[in-house]
Nucleic acid binder design. Sequence first.
DNA 1: CAACATAAGTCTTTTTCGGATCAAAGAAGA
DNA 2: TCTTCTTTGATCCGAAAAAGACTTATGTTG
Lengths: 407, 407
Amino acid sequence: MLTRVIQVVETRETAAPATAGELLELVRTGRAATRSQLRALTGLSRTAVTARVSALTNAGLLLIGEELASTGGRPPGALVFNKDAGVVLAVAIGRSRSQLAVLDLDGQELAADSRDHEVGVGPDDLLPDVAQRLTGLLDAAQADRGEPPVLGIGLSLPGTLDSVRGLSIGSPVMSGWDGVELAPYFAGVADAPLFVANDADVLARSELLGGAGGLDDVLVVKASTGLGLGIIADGRVLSGHLGAAGEIGHTVVDAAGDLACRCGATGCLETIAAGWALVTRMAAEGDQGVPVEHVRDLVALALQGDSFARGLLRDSGRELGEVLAVAINLLNPAAVVIGGDMAAAFEFYLAGVRESVYRRSAPLATRDLQFLPAVHGDRAGVVGCGALALDHVLAPVAVDARLAALA
Amino acid sequence: MLTRVIQVVETRETAAPATAGELLELVRTGRAATRSQLRALTGLSRTAVTARVSALTNAGLLLIGEELASTGGRPPGALVFNKDAGVVLAVAIGRSRSQLAVLDLDGQELAADSRDHEVGVGPDDLLPDVAQRLTGLLDAAQADRGEPPVLGIGLSLPGTLDSVRGLSIGSPVMSGWDGVELAPYFAGVADAPLFVANDADVLARSELLGGAGGLDDVLVVKASTGLGLGIIADGRVLSGHLGAAGEIGHTVVDAAGDLACRCGATGCLETIAAGWALVTRMAAEGDQGVPVEHVRDLVALALQGDSFARGLLRDSGRELGEVLAVAINLLNPAAVVIGGDMAAAFEFYLAGVRESVYRRSAPLATRDLQFLPAVHGDRAGVVGCGALALDHVLAPVAVDARLAALA
DNA sequence: CAACATAAGTCTTTTTCGGATCAAAGAAGA
DNA sequence: TCTTCTTTGATCCGAAAAAGACTTATGTTG
């Protein structure tokens, strides 16, 4: 008799044969580049693989590229994902800026646009304009590439969103947006599904395409005007019961005393660590000669050597680290990624974060823990929105549905 | 043109046809009780459903029960999961106690055994005895039910475990256990796979079978001699990068000052909120006439009206709540379940937890938030270990593999 | 009691799959 | 250089599986 530990290294979650959509995913993620590799990975017969690959090539999603190097016999024809089989639209809406982009199916920007708007603008004032700009970008991007269809639209907003109904349900920063259905505004742009997510979640998704690519458990900090956290656990972006997961900015911390927060409460972490709070302190206590209106100004000063600005960033990192340490003990991530405007001064900010995290976290939770800067910088919003849409429209189920509709 | 929000209400994750294992899951979880319901849920043809159901009945996993009430035509034959098609073994090892059980496939105890052991006993001293007791329990349970096969063994330990290799990798409480492969000890008991998990994770799994059954996002607190947390997010138990998720007991908190913790560090949450710390304080400051050696003694005193004990429990809840508040903001659970020995004094403990949580958490994260007592009490360990094994051996993949092996 | 509705077994047709066979294209060795 | 071997990919065919039609069983409803 032998008792064994089951090695849960199944490549597939189910015993059912792999579908065409799953094969596309294997090619798309680089795990397979030839039909034979697909056979080996899925256990499907050559006939079955051929049939599915044909369906995918007929639909234009897969291309047979040039021959690869032989491994001792006839060289295989390369399977390449056709990143031009469609496009997705990305709409990253911030407090004072909206960034738009048209992306190919690899997540590469084909056209992009960014525009500042006044703080507090409502959806009825902003979104028609956004839709119009989006149509313009789309026309420009489609013109010289054979009009690839729009497969999906990804949109991000600060605050808590209901991803099923496609609306904001609690955003202290975007007044007038709560409860407003967003999909109708994009009806004229394209006949494509709209996917919405929180700005921090979207940042996390952009990092899954970037620095934290291979990791399954990651915390992605968005340290900008506000503070947010995107949580990747077991390779999935967590949203929580009401979609409010990652809302660490409004945790009450002792160090904040009874400082008033922009959310209406007092003592929130944001009052001492968020970008808006640092800007306020800088304006009150810093060098009065230099106007600081946005965290980006403060970060620029820090990079130029302003020691007060550097101190503020380090303090902010330290305060965030106090809360982050709990998150690290709780979730045991493989990496913490720092993004948002403050990440431009990564070293200064991280120094503060590290201080608190290593002091407060359990040794095992910080063993192997990496701290990484976000890789997409200013473009993280649109890249993440694109990733959000791509994750949905290129998911095996969606691809299979697409093939079924074609036939 | 119409832009729509995709309603992600897919019953299935894939477009591939449902396998027999998936059908069994639908029956087992009560979502289907007749072949027609399986047809409706899966989209499979009647022939396909019949074939899979036959395979399951032939394997003994499914039974055709008596006829159900007609819905206007011929009454359907009920499909019932055969909970006696096998058994699983549960081994919950604690610091000072090991609980064993034989469970049917519904998670019902058929035989159980609990024995105290000295603190600090090593695996070589404890496990052979455990294996022997387990064999005895198994013989007794199998005798009068036609010798159902052992499908799996679930084992829990305090600390951090490597579930792939099946060993402890960091348990300050169980010295001598780290790095010791556990499966070999059970080779003589049954030819079945061993699944290992942390005691808090196992508690969380037991609650998924109980009070938190329908919920997808739950925090399960284990407040006993030590402090632990099991995290259920999107219906899955999170374990983190190294398996250390939920280790909140050794978060450094200011209120703990530089009190020495049993883990070797200072200032851990456990030093002011764990059962062992309360017992120490009770012994030093409480009524000297009553010997308090274990949290259970302290809880018993609280329930009898001892105000010092009640105060300690409430204080402990308050301290835990400080950290729990961050966890709640972070993960936005639908419910927090309180388990472990202290949960026997649920009301006193919860009062403290509530105080901190409501003071520190963001309003949206605590909207709808329920606090529930763990339902399995003293039996949570073995129930959870059983659930751990059942989750694996009754998973669709495993069932499909079983059917394939049979044929 | 007849008409109808639902369930489930049986049979036939269609689809899909896997293996065999064969052709293509290069590598390895004589 | 030529032959043999290996790998890839296309085609064909038989086996298996699934879907649909038909039939039988057993209730409810009027």
